[in-house]
């Protein structure tokens, strides 16, 4: 209806005349206005300004901070102060710092057992969660891509829906589901005569609880990406493989996986980075417990920085985390991209 009205409107003479006059006007204006050199740079400058203030500066300052010890706020001290006629430029000192060199790195690498534990916790969650979620997402995507499923759009939306939930909100729901004997999961288990599972109080079970929560939240998101990837694989490749005598599994192995490789790589790398940045879920669901068994690296950074106000030390941990995640991602990209 709307399109028919629009097409009728667009075919009317007065509309065409008007749009022609507008076009001539535009052409006249652009031929009269002189070319201003460097104008395009002005147009793209907002990004660089925001990037500099909110990303580049904090990043560099973090690296800078990691070789200092934070001694409290700076008060009225300043780094530079220039006075010229009536103008005055003052760059105040952000904080009161004491240079410690690589001492933070030394202690966190060689003696900080809590940091080591948080690294182990994060690594454990990464090793279980990423493969589990990617395999699950791929399996669901393949099922949704197949011919025999009805109401694909509905399933796709339902499965991808968790990604729309707020981090803290869904974590709170998981906390309520898994909390001790009153949580719904244990209630259900006990009602069918099974023992309650110490979801949050056992070290290993607490880590598994986090794995379940993150997988629930992110599986649908990755499934959508993999499904989009699956849909770009030309159907004829499957037909050629069928003619060549391939079984279902061989088609998956020799057509789907190699064709999906770049998409799989993206999903794996982005999930890896996501797992290493894990914070809200352990913060809300387990609080890092029991006995720091679910303390993640980012949670440890948070504690150091904002609970104990060791900003320098927290920055050093951050730098370490970036190095570790970068190293893993580079290995993944190298290995995953090698066959391309």
């Amino acid at each position: 209806m709307a399109t028919s009205i629009r097409s009728e409107l667009q075919s009317s003479e007065s509309y065409q005349e008007l749009s022609d006059r507008l076009r001539f006007l535009r052409q006249n204006v652009s031929s009269v206005v002189p070319k201003i050199p460097g104008l395009p740079y002005l147009y793209i400058s907002p990004f660089y300004l925001l990037f500099s203030v909110f990303l580049l500066f904090p990043t560099l300052y973090t690296i800078y901070l990691s070789v200092f010890s934070y001694e409290g706020p700076a008060g009225s001290e300043y780094i530079v102060s220039i006075q010229a006629w009536i103008f005055e430029l003052t760059i105040p000192k952000i904080s009161n710092l004491e240079f410690v060199g690589l001492a933070h790195y030394e202690s966190l690498i060689f003696s900080d057992s809590v940091f080591h534990l948080s690294l182990f916790n994060t690594g454990f969650i990464f090793l279980i969660q990423v493969p589990l979620m990617v395999i699950l997402a791929l399996a669901v995507a393949i099922v949704l891509d197949s011919k025999f499923i009805r109401a694909k759009g509905l399933w796709r939306t339902l499965i991808a829906l968790p990604v729309a939930t707020g981090m803290v909100a869904y974590s709170t729901v998981f906390l309520l589901l898994f909390e001790g004997d009153v949580g719904m999961i244990n209630q259900v288990l006990m009602s069918v005569g099974l023992d309650a599972v110490p979801w949050l109080t056992d070290r290993w079970m607490a880590r598994i609880t986090l794995v379940i929560a993150i997988t629930w939240r992110w599986m649908g998101y990755n499934m959508i990406i993999l499904l989009a990837g699956l849909q770009t694989i030309p159907q004829q490749l499957y037909e050629a493989a069928e003619i060549d005598g391939a079984t279902m599994w061989q088609k998956f192995r020799f057509v789907t996986v190699p064709q999906l490789r770049p998409v799989l790589l993206f999903v794996i790398v982005s999930s890896t980075i996501g797992t290493f940045k894990l914070f809200a879920e352990p913060f809300v669901i387990t609080g890092g417990g029991p006995a720091n068994a679910t303390l993640t690296v980012v949670q440890y950074i948070y504690r150091q920085a904002f609970v104990q106000l060791n900003l320098g030390y927290a920055s050093a941990v951050t730098v370490c985390l970036v190095v570790i995640v970068s190293a893993i991602s580079i290995v993944q990209v190298r290995r995953g991209g090698a066959a391309q």
């Binding site: 004829q236 490749l237 493989a241 069928e242 003619i243 005598g245 079984t247 020799f254």
Partner: peptide, 16 residues
Amino acid sequence: ARDRDVAMVFQNYALY
């Protein structure tokens, strides 16, 4: 198809 012992050349070749 895979049990029929046929070979096929596709219009756009469908090479892997």
